[in-house]
Computed example of a mutant assay.
Amino acid sequence: MLHGLIGQIDGPIPVAEIARALDIVEVRECPLDGCEGVLITDRQRSRGSILVNNKRGAQAARFSIAHELGHFLLERHVLGLADGMVCTKNDMRESRTMRQQMQRHRKQEVEANEFAIGLLVPDYAMAPTLRSDPAIQAITLMKDKLDISLEASTRCLVERHDEPLAAVWARDGLIRYVVRGPRFPWITWKQGQRLPDLSRTPRYLASGRVGVSAMSEVAPAAWTHHELPELFEQVRIGKDGHSLTLLWATLPEAEDEEE
Rank of each mutant, 00 (worst) to 15 (best):
N113T: 09
R93A: 15
T88I: 05
M126P: 12
R99V: 09
A138C: 08
P164N: 08
L119S: 08
V158F: 02
V121C: 14
V78L: 01
L73M: 12
M142K: 03
I136H: 01
Y124F: 12
S149F: 01
R76G: 09
I136N: 03
M102Q: 03
F72A: 03
H77D: 01
L150F: 07
A82L: 06
P182G: 10
L79R: 01
I139M: 03
Y124E: 15
I187S: 13
V158G: 08
E159I: 04
R131F: 11
A167Q: 09
R131E: 15
R155T: 11
V86S: 08
S132C: 11
L157V: 10
G118A: 10
A82Y: 04
V121T: 12
F72S: 02
L120T: 02
A170L: 02
D162E: 13
R131C: 13
A167G: 13
L150W: 02
V178E: 00
A170Q: 01
G181M: 08
M98A: 10
F72G: 07
K143N: 00
N113C: 14
L73E: 14
D172N: 13
G84N: 02
L141M: 10
V86N: 04
M85W: 00
P185N: 10
E151P: 06
R93F: 12
K145D: 02
I148P: 03
W186C: 13
